[in-house]
Design a protein around this nucleic acid. Structure first.
Lengths: 167, 167
DNA sequence: TTGGCCTATGTTACTCTATAACCTTTCGTA
DNA sequence: TACGAAAGGTTATAGAGTAACATAGGCCAA
């Protein structure tokens, strides 16, 4: 049985963006932390699509949007904040960052990453997290953070003959 | 029920090294690929312990062992070869490389990484790989490579009060 | 409302990781 | 032994991330 993840389907992405930004505002308000202009702008840029973005790409996007250039530490500090608040995830495989659709629920970082179109699909599988914790416990290991990064082809790209034959 | 992974236990590590190098020799012989001096030396250095090593650390170790300095491309080419042959894995979380104890069996990259002592324990859980493939298939995703990197505390460090209190 | 503190951002310089491009050497084979 | 492919050497540079210190802005207490 298959379902199409939202990242992979045609959808009104403006809705994704506004939902994410509103969730971020509420979450920061509730926690008493400051979602500054810069942090909000970085989060908004990350949400431009469902593809993870590198810090230096973000810097260029900021420069283009703001006329003023920001230096690496500035963007990394904003990213650190967003990571701490769980508003974004880091994709180690790509040295890149992607928005989290459910920042208010504590969860692990599990992604499907399409190497054809570049999108990253976040999995929501608490059962899988539990399975991983179980396997680790058998080895006497105390789990703190999980990072699952599966690369391959998303539903769209896998069914696109132009993609499948060009690999 | 717990078992102590070998990387975590007291063990004769020379045995790990000689096994790994012998396995590599056999595997390359069988595949008709060349395990050159440099490649063998890099593999041996990686196997010095169960902690992932960065490319630049390896470069320094090579320089110390050989009197002659090697440049980054040289060590990266050796690493690429070893990765292609499945003799080592890359740990994205650490930008580092670690020896694979079972290069002759095709498998996914699943690791437990202790942030206290630095060791990486490779999991051997085909069932977990299958579970991940299943979850991905539900989203219509065609899996090519899995990378699971779990960070936390290994059995030794978790039971060491000096470690637990210093975090 | 001012002063002081804390947090956020700016700036400069640097480290670490990785690769491009081109040249030389080495190895296996014809 | 000579040739071609593969491996390694060299130089330069791209890409990712951080240290250290300076400045600005928001918030609270007196």
């Amino acid at each position: 049985m298959e379902y199409a993840p939202i990242a992979c389907s045609h959808h009104d992405h403006n809705h994704c963006i506004s939902d994410a930004l509103e969730a971020a505002r509420q979450l920061c308000l509730g926690r008493g932390v400051r979602l500054t202009d810069l942090r909000l702008q970085v989060l908004e840029l990350i949400w431009q699509n469902h593809k993870p973005l590198g810090a230096y790409t973000l810097m260029e996007m900021l420069a283009r949007a703001n006329t003023r250039r920001v230096a690496p530490p500035t963007v990394y500090r904003a990213l650190d904040f967003l990571l701490e608040q769980g508003l974004i995830h880091r994709i180690n495989l790509l040295n890149a960052f992607i928005g989290c659709p459910s920042p208010n629920i504590k969860h692990q970082s599990h992604f499907l990453i399409c190497h054809a179109c570049g999108i990253a699909i976040e999995l929501d599988q608490p059962e899988l997290s539990q399975k991983i914790i179980g396997v680790a416990q058998e080895a006497g290991f105390r789990v703190e953070k999980q990072s699952l990064e599966v690369s391959g082809l998303c539903a769209n790209c896998a069914s696109d003959p132009a993609v499948s034959t060009s690999i």
